[in-house]
Design a protein around this nucleic acid. Structure first.
Lengths: 189, 189
DNA sequence: GATTATTGATTGACGAGTCAATAAACGACG
DNA sequence: CGTCGTTTATTGACTCGTCAATCAATAATC
């Protein structure tokens, strides 16, 4: 079998780990490659340049997160459960691993200058929004999109806050979102 | 008069401008210094190393933001107006200038690894929280701190969202927060 | 035999931080 | 007032390190 997929995967994982260690995108391809057990030349051979490596890592993070969400949704029963599952998944302990935090923060930075990163970020946001709307529709009707916008913003903001100064675990943050959701929904009656 | 304060100010402003141009902390002291009209050696002379320059820039950003908030508060009449002023200030057009966005995003990144940056961020957050609680107390009583936490989170999250993908101007975002605030407060009766 | 995998060595550029040296400004003091 | 020793301002040149990207060459694999 061709070595390419395995090598790419190794590099992506090493990239995320490395960004987690360093805390910024100031990671060298050499260190990534060494961590992945190969020469830097091979990394360039497969990815072309550094930005492509970063984008692949970002794609991977989003894929994992997406899978997590999907997994949480299957066990959810009814709209309210679905929404809560989405929220809980966003604050899963996986997302609070040091590497995951570093990845997200740096991808935000990257999104300023890299069209590719911006596109990926939009995908994440659209997916979250659409998932939320889907769950909220039966609960909030026409205003579901507006509610979803606010809940999504709250998720991002609280993630940011807890990522950089953990006051309690992720579930504390999730509880805050639940509370806001209650407030939003109660307004509707 | 000593040249030091002027030089420091020039460097701080050049730093913010440069970070805005580059989008990351990958800015060189040489470029900053050149932009500020002096040699890089002088920058090192006054600040010691690069991190101190960054921290000074961050402090400056927070100072300006703080002044903006205070200015908005004096014209505010009554608790509700105070809270709205805080929210509006957070989404002021000044905060959406390219350099300001770049500064904030990168300071989040820096906060992962720099104790100094983390401390400054905590100051910003505490100040926002305390301002919100102060305004909310007459409106929400005992639960003011909880409401403030959620509003603060929403502010950060919506800022992040609009900073990287402006759908409408800052006031659109502010309106979303107002809406959430309404929902929170209406729940209390 | 041709495509794929892999690397060591190298290039060329850049960048943080230092240093010694020069120029200004600043008192103090006669 | 002048001048002189001292602190402050300022820089060019330099060091030492690093790093992205390339390339030619060698080993596998098909």
């Amino acid at each position: 079998m061709s070595a390419e997929p395995k090598r790419r995967a190794q590099l992506v994982e090493a990239t995320i780990a490395e960004i987690g260690d360093v805390g910024s995108l100031n990671v060298t391809v050499s260190r990534i490659a060494k961590r992945a057990g190969m020469s830097s030349a091979l990394a360039f051979h497969y990815f072309g340049d550094k930005e492509q490596i970063f984008l692949a890592a970002m794609r991977y993070i989003l894929t994992v997160y997406g899978a997590e969400v999907r997994g949480a949704l299957v066990t959810a029963d009814g709209p309210r459960q679905r929404v809560e599952a989405l929220i809980r998944a966003s604050f899963s302990s996986a997302n609070f691993r040091r590497e995951a935090i570093a990845a997200w923060l740096n991808f935000y930075v990257l999104a300023q200058t890299s069209e590719g990163a911006r596109r990926l970020l939009r995908i994440y946001r659209r997916r979250l929004h659409s998932n939320l709307v889907h769950g909220l529709r039966p609960l909030a009707g026409d205003v579901a999109p507006g509610v979803a916008q606010r809940i999504a913003g709250l998720i991002d903001g609280l993630y940011l806050r807890h990522a950089l100064d953990p006051e309690g675990d992720g579930q504390t943050a999730a509880a805050l979102v639940f509370h806001a959701l209650d407030a939003e929904l109660r307004t509707l009656r």
